[in-house]
Design a protein around this nucleic acid. Sequence first.
DNA 1: AATAATTTTTAGTCACGTCTAAATTTATAT
DNA 2: ATATAAATTTAGACGTGACTAAAAATTATT
Lengths: 218, 218
Amino acid sequence: MLSQAEENYLKAILKLSQKNGKSVSTNAIADELYTKASSVSDMMKKLSEKSLIHYVKYQGVYLTEKGKGLAVHIVRKHRLWEVFLVNHLNFKWDEVHDIAEQLEHIKSLELVNKLDAFLNFPSFDPHGDPIPNEAGEFPKTSAIPFSELPVKSRGKVVAVVMDEPSFLKYLDKLNISIGAQVEVIEVNEFDDSFDVKINDIQSHISLDVAKNILISLL
Amino acid sequence: MLSQAEENYLKAILKLSQKNGKSVSTNAIADELYTKASSVSDMMKKLSEKSLIHYVKYQGVYLTEKGKGLAVHIVRKHRLWEVFLVNHLNFKWDEVHDIAEQLEHIKSLELVNKLDAFLNFPSFDPHGDPIPNEAGEFPKTSAIPFSELPVKSRGKVVAVVMDEPSFLKYLDKLNISIGAQVEVIEVNEFDDSFDVKINDIQSHISLDVAKNILISLL
DNA sequence: AATAATTTTTAGTCACGTCTAAATTTATAT
DNA sequence: ATATAAATTTAGACGTGACTAAAAATTATT
Ligand SMILES: [Mn+2]
Ligand SMILES: [Mn+2]
Ligand SMILES: [Mn+2]
Ligand SMILES: [Mn+2]
């Protein structure tokens, strides 16, 4: 049985290897978990000992099949709980991450699957992140950053990349939520900002914001 | 912020002081938590240091107001989650305790109160145990053990004393659930067993079982 | 290729929560 | 009142997961 610390390391390694390449560096993990490289080194030995990661000193790590399966399961729990909190307990999408960080460590396969059924087997969480099914398979998604939407093209918001509350609250202020229709009117080369339409209402967003919104083309 | 271990100790002390007298002994706590007396002694120092218990060496402990408030809050969470698991996720009443033991440690006041609202502010959990409200007040209850129900009197099951799955499953087999109508037909002095009616159907239970069922007189 | 900078690992320490064994205190029995 | 038994605490150890400082390996620069 894994400790919460071990689970958090596995999740961090999965996240980093999905974002970047296969092999994940010690420092990257330390940054992700707000800990120190030396602590990571210690933990890598333990996880390697348990056959959850492949670890060669100084060469970074990557998940074994077993480790990946466990990491995906934790992500599944995290996202299912987020759906519950938003859809049934009336939390806002910027309030659920920290609570889900705790709930994801609750150990009971029955609980996860009953929760999944209660929620009607959702494919995406409140931030548009894909939820793996019981077999660990992620729903197919094809989305591009808002910042790459061609001028005059229209799209639909399907996910956000960051889940920092401050960013999500800013999106609320801009009336940008999952499902919103968006269109690029003009790109301002001067500051790389965009004149856009959000649900047909004229607005303006920075490149930084646009990069963190994922859309599908309409 | 309390650790899970500290919370479990507080809960154990509350439980024991509710059942028996004020002051709780080191060994009683050790038994309750399946740990050793020496571990309890160590923890008593820490909890005392944090002003959560009154502790005089060799004299047992009892909760301070602060400690009691925290302990009651954990009980509140435990029982609310049990209601959720049974009423919304279709768990049986014998399956929820261990999961609630984990969920009770999730830290978020907002979560507890939103869950409470979602569940319609229940007063009792699936085992008939009273659920304290946000202010920490328990609903009033007056129940007696089934074993003390006079012959020919009728009562309604309101709670069970034990929550061991084996006991609860046995009650299922006997068709005894919260709300069931019960009546004592005859007491068998020979083995202290009871001839009873459960929802008007004749049955037979031992003293041991009868002592662990709480009823209110009709 | 040699040196410098960066990354990673190791060595040593610490707090937490547990344990066993030994010492101490309190309770019980004679 | 004294001896014995039971309960409790202390002493010393261990595993986990973190840290700092120092050493070692890798990568980048000249
Ligand atoms: Mn999240
Ligand atoms: Mn999410
Ligand atoms: Mn319970
Ligand atoms: Mn209960």
